[in-house]
């Protein structure tokens, strides 16, 4: 059986770099916040894949906490962009 978790994680990291291009060139602050949200979602997927690849279940716990904290940070960035903070 070939090990296909690490190549999948590598492809997702390349996708994270492509999303960071939009984070760099985004014309409005909402575009940059959306790119950060995309990077957070893909990071959770990469952490799940790495947890299986290295046989460490603690990585998946880190993924849960990262998903919830990035949700809170995105909500606060959205309130700041909307001018309510």
């Amino acid at each position: 059986m070939i090990d296909y978790w690490l190549p999948a994680a590598l492809i997702l990291v390349i996708l994270i770099m492509l999303a960071a291009v939009r984070l760099w060139i985004g014309p409005t602050p909402a575009d940059r916040a959306l790119a950060v949200d995309t990077v957070n979602t893909l990071t959770v997927a990469v952490l799940i894949l790495l947890g299986v690849a290295y046989r460490q279940i603690i990585f998946i716990d880190v993924a849960i906490v990262y998903a919830l904290l990035s949700f809170v940070s995105t909500l606060f960035i959205a309130k700041y962009i909307g001018g309510e903070l």
Binding site: A30, A33, L34, I77, A78, I81, G82
Partner: peptide, 12 residues
């Protein structure tokens, strides 16, 4: 979070 971002983008 995407709903909140869309609302904030429209408000800005």
């Amino acid at each position: 979070s995407s709903h909140a971002l869309a609302r904030a983008a429209h408000k800005s």
